[in-house]
Amino acid sequence: MSEILSFNNVSFSYTPEVKDARKAVQNVSFTINEGEWISIVGHNGSGKSTMVKIISGLLFPQEGEVHVMKNVLTEENLWETRTQIGMVFQNPDNQFVGATVQDDVAFALENNGVPHEEMVKRVHTSLKQVNMDSFLNHEPHHLSGGQKQRVAIAGALAMRPKILILDEATAMLDPQGRAEVLNTVQELREETRLTVLSITHDVEEALLADRILFMNDGKKYAEGSPQEVFSLGDKLVEFGLELPFAMRMTKLLKANGVSLIGEHMTEEELVNDLWTSNFNK
């Protein structure tokens, strides 16, 4: 697969003039390939938000390099690089600027000088991709939380980005809204090979990723598949990360004498094991 984003020994401090100052990001390296879904997880202050700011060019590393589409991110190519990155933030209300859904999706396109006919085409296409094309003339603030985030995703998609960054994009949603957004992103990946970078506290969301980067105190503590990272178990809990519900329930059941074969990442795995081990004899 083709490399689309990488950190090479990246470090950043908000107080570089202070000797031995704590680094918000310290010597972090990783690579994301086209079409992957990567989740960055960690407690508050672990460096996740700083990494997003570095990727989007709001901050530049004091050490190391960031590569986007294999090009080093610099002040000279920043604006061109940003056209390759779509951002969806935690609170969709803070992103809306248009009076209607279609106005809002068209806003960035208009600012970037996209011709009117092309703009109309992209607005309709991107809203259809997130199943919001029947809401063209609705006022964004009257939508549900999940619908608002899907409109925000449509606005990002209309710019034809190579990478979609979800910065705690489901944190303020109820379970139904969260499911709507995550299902939409999964479908987009399957249809378009969109690369997704998810910054999240939600371990159930992180389980959807191909790989997880676990950050602690500005450093990359672990990297691997969800199974590999969450197999660290209590060590992650020690650093402030909650384990998936199925893993916690598995430990609780075993502690109370229920026979189970192994550890379980999902509720489906746990239910199947319970059925096989205890009810299908």
Rank of each mutant, 00 (worst) to 15 (best):
F60M: 15
I55G: 03
F60A: 11
W79R: 15
R150F: 03
Q102S: 14
L143D: 01
P140M: 06
V181Y: 07
Q84K: 15
D167S: 04
H124T: 11
L136C: 08
V68L: 15
M69Y: 00
G146D: 00
R160M: 09
A154R: 01
Q147Y: 01
K162I: 00
Q95M: 14
Q176T: 06
H67M: 13
H116C: 11
V120K: 15
M69C: 13
V72G: 08
T125V: 12
Q84P: 06
K121D: 10
N71Y: 02
R82G: 02
V130W: 05
F60S: 13
P92H: 03
Q147I: 01
I153M: 09
V130E: 03
S134K: 08
G98Y: 05
H138V: 02
G155D: 00
H116D: 12
G155V: 04
L166S: 02
E80P: 08
L58N: 09
K121T: 12
T125P: 02
A99C: 14
I153S: 01
L78D: 05
P115V: 02
E80W: 10
V123T: 05
S134E: 05
D104P: 11
Q147L: 01
H142E: 09
V130G: 06
H67W: 08
D174N: 05
M69T: 11
A169R: 08
K162E: 02
T81Q: 12
W79T: 06
A169G: 03
D103F: 08
R82P: 00
L109V: 01
L136H: 04
A152D: 00
N77H: 05
S126F: 04
T74S: 13
E63W: 15
F60Y: 15
V101K: 10
V181T: 03
V114R: 08
M172F: 00
N71P: 02
T83M: 15
A171E: 02
F96R: 04
A156K: 07
W79Q: 15
T74M: 13
G57H: 14
Q90Y: 03
H116K: 15
Q129K: 14
F89N: 12
W79D: 13
N91W: 03
V101F: 01
A156M: 13
P92D: 00
D174Q: 10
S126H: 00
G146L: 07
R122Q: 09
Q62E: 12
I153T: 07
P161F: 03
I153Q: 09
A108C: 13
P140K: 09
S126N: 05
P140R: 02
Q95Y: 01
K121R: 15
H116R: 14
Q149T: 05
S56E: 15
A106M: 10
M119P: 01
N91L: 09
N94T: 12
K162M: 08
A152V: 02
N71Q: 15
T170E: 06
L73Y: 06
V88D: 11
N94F: 07
N137I: 03
Q62P: 13
A179V: 04
